[in-house]
Amino acid sequence: MAAKDERGRAGEDRACAYLAAQGFRVVSRNWRTTSGELDIVAVRGRSLVVVEVKTRRTTDYGDPLAAVDRRKLAQVWRLALGWVREHPEESRGRTVRVDVIGITGEDPATADLAHLEDVR
């Protein structure tokens, strides 16, 4: 696995641990279609939360949260709707939102973590 892929996986692991500590239950990771991939799908209460995770070593190329632009956000929403269609048992009666978690630092396990909720 390439170093970039390993860093991304470590960032997603960190994000899942953070979400669990915040009371979320992760129901899916790395859900793929021909159109793309959802990093994390989690539930808390009546919310189904699709989480895009961006992990970077530094902010030399910008804040990882800023990497989720309108185009990327639109793609995440399209994928989220596909996930809902394929998982009606987890989705029924829940509101859907997209969150973004940015992780910045050398070691994703101890790096700075920022969580933006309900990104539109």
Rank of each mutant, 00 (worst) to 15 (best):
P64N: 03
V49F: 05
R56Y: 10
Q75Y: 06
R46V: 03
A67T: 12
D60V: 13
G62W: 11
A80E: 01
R94T: 00
V76H: 14
I103H: 02
V84E: 04
Q75M: 08
R56Q: 12
R71W: 11
L65M: 06
E89P: 05
R78Y: 05
Q75P: 05
R97P: 07
R56M: 13
K72E: 11
D63H: 15
E89N: 07
K72M: 13
L79Q: 03
A66K: 15
K72W: 12
V51N: 07
G102Q: 03
R70I: 11
E86D: 06
V84L: 02
D99A: 10
L48C: 09
E52D: 08
I101M: 07
D63R: 13
T110N: 09
T110D: 03
V51S: 05
G102Y: 09
A66I: 06
R44L: 00
R56W: 09
R94N: 04
A67N: 12
E89Y: 03
W83G: 00
R97W: 01
R44H: 04
R44W: 05
L48H: 04
A80F: 12
E90N: 00
R46F: 11
L81T: 02
L48W: 09
D107E: 09
I101G: 00
I103R: 02
L79R: 02
G62C: 06
E90Y: 03
V96G: 02
D69A: 07
E89Q: 02
R85A: 01
R56S: 14
W77A: 14
V49M: 07
P108T: 01
R56D: 11
T110H: 12
R56I: 11
S47F: 12
T55L: 13
P108H: 08
R57Y: 15
P88N: 01
G62D: 11
P88V: 03
V50M: 08
A42M: 07
R46M: 10
S47N: 13
G82Q: 08
R94M: 03
R71D: 12
R85F: 02
R71T: 07
V53E: 10
I101R: 02
T59Q: 14
A67W: 15
E52I: 08
K54G: 00
P88A: 00
R46Y: 08
R94A: 04
T59K: 15
E52S: 14
L73W: 06
S91Q: 00
R44S: 06
K72Y: 12
L79V: 01
E89A: 09
R78K: 07
R56E: 11
R57L: 15
P64Q: 06
R57T: 13
Y61W: 14
E86W: 00
K72R: 15
V53Y: 11
E52Q: 14
R97Q: 00
V53K: 14
A74Y: 15
P88H: 01
E52L: 11
V100N: 04
R94I: 02
P108E: 03
K54P: 08
R85Y: 02
A67F: 14
V49N: 02
D69Y: 03
R44K: 08
V43G: 10
V84G: 00
L79N: 05
K72L: 08
G102C: 03
V43Q: 13
R85T: 07
A109Q: 09
T55F: 12
L48F: 08
